[in-house]
Structures are given as structure tokens and as C-alpha cells.
């Protein structure tokens, strides 16, 4: 084969290569491509994610005071000595005041129950989508994602139109002469709101595992004598476990810290920790107390968050 570049009578045209120049220039200063890619996201996350979390921990150990900022400084310099003052009062209050303990427990309970119901509602939907014939599958999947792109807040608002005293459900019941039900400002409404909002988060990871499930496995199980229900329990369910875990955590974690849903749909007695944090911050302007509540909330979700990352990694690898 002819090699033009090595042919002396055929010199290659000299062209400026801007990319090469940039790379060489950077290499001279000692910056590799790798470092260049990493530096921006690492710095950003350090400053705007890690340090803020550290601040939450720090300020949870301060006390409220009047002024700007509205909390006591942790470090004070007095006569040349640096003094570190840590207050545990916020945490003591958190554990001793029934309000906080109740909010904490009821958040976990509400989040857990709605996660289970969302799973029960979402699983058959995800399964139906995964088994739908080809053109339908994408349409249905789109229908799951679509509400996510309309405003979350507006969808919650839409629910109130259904559940309020003169809302659609009660109007419908009224046709049969049934007394209007009180749904708004109850825990029931909060459950409905959580399930409604987080259903797509449950369906998507479930769908991802279920669509990858080889139909031949289901057939093999039937071939070996399993009735449909037995096949579901012994093959489908265990093999979709990563999706169940990921979906459940994706619902549970934000549900624990949810503010908007209990604020709009719940009653005054619906205690949720996200709402408590909000009220401490905006109502009582007690920033240290709010920070302590955030730390307590973090303690609930940190294990689920780590589990979620593991489950997601497992799903990506498979």
C-alpha cells in the first residue's frame, strides 16, 4: 500500500492542530486530562455539598441567639485564647420533647407504609408495561414519566380538588346519597399524596429489572410444573429484588423528609419531621434546632441512601 507521508516527494500539508497545542500546553503545566475533567465537579461538590453538610452538623451544636446570623458562634476568641463552645441542648431537647420523638417515629411509619403500598400498586403496573407488546411499551413508559415533568406541586394541588369536602369524590358519592367523607387534612390524604407523587419512582426501577427478565425463565418454570403464582414467587419476585429495593428506597428516602405533602394535605396532627424542620426554621427561626432535626433525619436516611447506591450499582452492572 502506498504510504504518502513517508514519500519525500509528497510532503504532508502542515496544518495547525489547535487540540494538540492545547493538550501540550496543559501538559507542560503538569495538568493531565484526567485531572482537568475531575477538578470542576470535585470542587463544586466539595464547596456546595460536603461543606454545607458539615455546617449543618456544626450549627446543630450552637444555640439560637438574636442577630445575624441567628446562632451562637462555635469559635470565640477572648483575650487571645480560642474557645470552642458546643451545645448539646438541641439534641437533648430532640430526645426529651415528645413532639420531636412523635414526629420522628410517625415520619418513619408514614414513609414505610406508603412505600409498601406504592410497591403493591406499582409492581403490577411495572410488570404490565414490561410485558406489553413493543410499541405499547414505550407509550406506557412515557405515560409513567409524563406526570413527573408536570409540576409536582400542581399535581398535589390537583389531588386536593379530588379530596376536598366538595371535591369530585364527594360529589360522586353524593349521587348515591352518601354523606361527604372528610379526607383533606388527614393522614389518609398524606398517604394518597405520597403514593401519587412517588409512584413513578417506584415503577421505573421495577420496570428496568422486569424488562430484563428473560421470558424463557418464566416459561422454563411453567414447563417444570409451576403454576403462574408459584412462578411469580419463585422466579419473578426474587429476580426483581434489585428493582424492588431501589424503587422502595427511592420512595422511602424522600418520603421521610417530605414537607409539601403533609403541609398541603395533612392536618395539624400529621406530624412529619420535614415539616417540623421547616417550622423550626421559618416559624421559630431556630436555626440550630432545625440543624439538629436535619441531623436526626440524616441518621434515618443515611443507611437507606447507602443501600440505594449499592442497589443502583448492582442494577447497572447486570
Amino acid at each position: 500500500m502506498a504510504n504518502f507521508s513517508s514519500d519525500p516527494s509528497f510532503p504532508p500539508p502542515r496544518r495547525l492542530k489547535p487540540w494538540k497545542a492545547v493538550e501540550r500546553g496543559l501538559a507542560k503545566v503538569g495538568i493531565s486530562g484526567k485531572a482537568l475533567v475531575l477538578i470542576a465537579p470535585v470542587l463544586w461538590l466539595l464547596v456546595f455539598f460536603l461543606i454545607p453538610l458539615a455546617l449543618v452538623f456544626g450549627i446543630s451544636l450552637a444555640t439560637k441567639q438574636f442577630g445575624r446570623p441567628p446562632y451562637s458562634p462555635l469559635l470565640t476568641t477572648e483575650d487571645g485564647t480560642v474557645q470552642l463552645t458546643l451545645h448539646l441542648s438541641n439534641y437533648i431537647k430532640l430526645f426529651s420533647d415528645n413532639l420531636y420523638v412523635a414526629a420522628y417515629l410517625s415520619s418513619i411509619r408514614i414513609a414505610f407504609i406508603s412505600t409498601v403500598i406504592t410497591l403493591i400498586v406499582g409492581y403490577p403496573m411495572a410488570y404490565a408495561i414490561a410485558r406489553a407488546p413493543d410499541p405499547w411499551r414505550n407509550v406506557l413508559l412515557m405515560l409513567v414519566v409524563l406526570p413527573f415533568f408536570t409540576s409536582f406541586l400542581l399535581r398535589i394541588y390537583a389531588l386536593t380538588g379530588f379530596m376536598r369536602g366538595n371535591g369530585l369524590i364527594n360529589q360522586f358519592l353524593g349521587l348515591f346519597g352518601i354523606e361527604p367523607l372528610v379526607m383533606m387534612q388527614t393522614d389518609f390524604a398524606v398517604y394518597v399524596g405520597l403514593i401519587y407523587s412517588y409512584l413513578p419512582f417506584m415503577i421505573l426501577p421495577l420496570y428496568t429489572t422486569l424488562v430484563k427478565l428473560d421470558v424463557a425463565l418464566i416459561e422454563a418454570s411453567a414447563d417444570l410444573g409451576s403454576r403462574p403464582w408459584q412462578t411469580f414467587m419463585s422466579i419473578t419476585l426474587p429476580l426483581s429484588l434489585p428493582g424492588i429495593i431501589a424503587g422502595s428506597l427511592l420512595v422511602f428516602i424522600p418520603a421521610v423528609g417530605e414537607y409539601v405533602i403533609p403541609a398541603l394535605l395533612g392536618g395539624p396532627e400529621t406530624l412529619m419531621i420535614g415539616r417540623v424542620l421547616w417550622d423550626e426554621f421559618f416559624g421559630a427561626t431556630n436555626w440550630p434546632r432545625a440543624s439538629a432535626v436535619a441531623v436526626a433525619m440524616l441518621a434515618v436516611v443515611v443507611v437507606p441512601i447507602m443501600l440505594l447506591q449499592k442497589a443502583q450499582n448492582a442494577m447497572v452492572e447486570k
Binding site: E219, A220, A222, D223, L224, G225, S226, R227
Partner: peptide
């Protein structure tokens, strides 16, 4: 399939 004396 689960009631057939046939395996695959």
C-alpha cells in the same frame, strides 16, 4: 404447560 408430561 405446567400440567403437561413434557419438559423442554
Amino acid at each position: 404447560p405446567y400440567n403437561r408430561p413434557v419438559n423442554m
